[in-house]
Each structure stands twice: as C-alpha cells, then as structure tokens.
C-alpha cells in the first residue's frame, strides 16, 4: 500500500468520524421539557452562569449603568464583565434638546 493510499484512508476515516459527530450534534433533538417546566415554575429569566456580579448573573434584567455601578465613571472590575456585557432592553428615554427662540445655533 502506497503512502498516498494510506493518507487517503486516514483522512477519510477522520472526516467520517468528524462529520458523523457534527451531524449527530446538529440534528439531535434536545429534550428540554423538564427544563422548561422548571423555568415556568420558578419564573427563571437567566442562565446561572457567572454569579460574581448581578449584571452577569442576570444579563437580561440588568440596568443600563450596572457595569459602572459604584460611582460615575467607575471602571468595570469584574472579569466576566468583558465576556458577558450588559445588553439593556426596555429603556426608551433619550435626551432632547430644545432650542429657545432668539438664540442661534
């Protein structure tokens, strides 16, 4: 058996294994019924991933300033703050500037 044939068999086996794993992973039906029951019963809104800061424990419930919570312009000091950034939703307000008549821009 030549080196070329050995290599082709080797890479074919590797490709077969990897594709098999990927196909099983991408088409496998995940049964989340029990988890959904739990989420509904306890009213869970977030994954219990990082519990070091409230905005990384509950990213969906965190407020806009949670990452700078200690004082204005405070630096972010939790390591996961750079991985799980707050993504505030539900805030609608914005700054409006009203120009008084008689003043020029």
């Amino acid at each position: 058996m030549t080196r070329g044939t050995i290599y082709l068999i080797f890479i074919a086996v590797l490709l077969f294994m990897t594709t098999g794993l990927l196909i099983t992973s991408s088409t496998g039906i995940i049964d989340l019924t029990e988890k959904r029951q739990l989420v509904q019963a306890l009213g869970i809104t977030d994954l219990s991933l990082s519990s070091e800061a409230r905005y990384t424990r509950h990213p969906s419930q965190a407020d806009l300033f949670s990452a700078f919570q200690d004082f204005p312009a405070a630096f972010e000091h939790f390591p996961t703050g750079s991985i799980i950034a707050p993504n505030p939703v539900g805030f609608f307000s914005r700054v409006k500037i009203q120009h008084h008549s008689g003043k020029q821009n």
């Binding site: 959904r36 009213g43 869970i44 809104t45 994954l47 919570q69």
Partner: peptide
C-alpha cells in the same frame, strides 16, 4: 451550545417582567 440551551429552556420564561427604575437603577 450555550445559546441553544438558553434560547431553548427560556421559552417558558415570564412573558413580560416589569421593573421599576429609579435614578437609572433597578
């Protein structure tokens, strides 16, 4: 995988949560 886990499990999360915000904080 984490995204699938979160978006799959949290489909039964509360439909609407109402917080109060005071001085820019919860």
């Amino acid at each position: 995988a984490l995204k699938m886990e979160a978006t799959g499990s949290l489909t039964t999360a509360p439909e609407l949560v109402v917080q109060r915000v005071a001085a820019g904080r919860h």
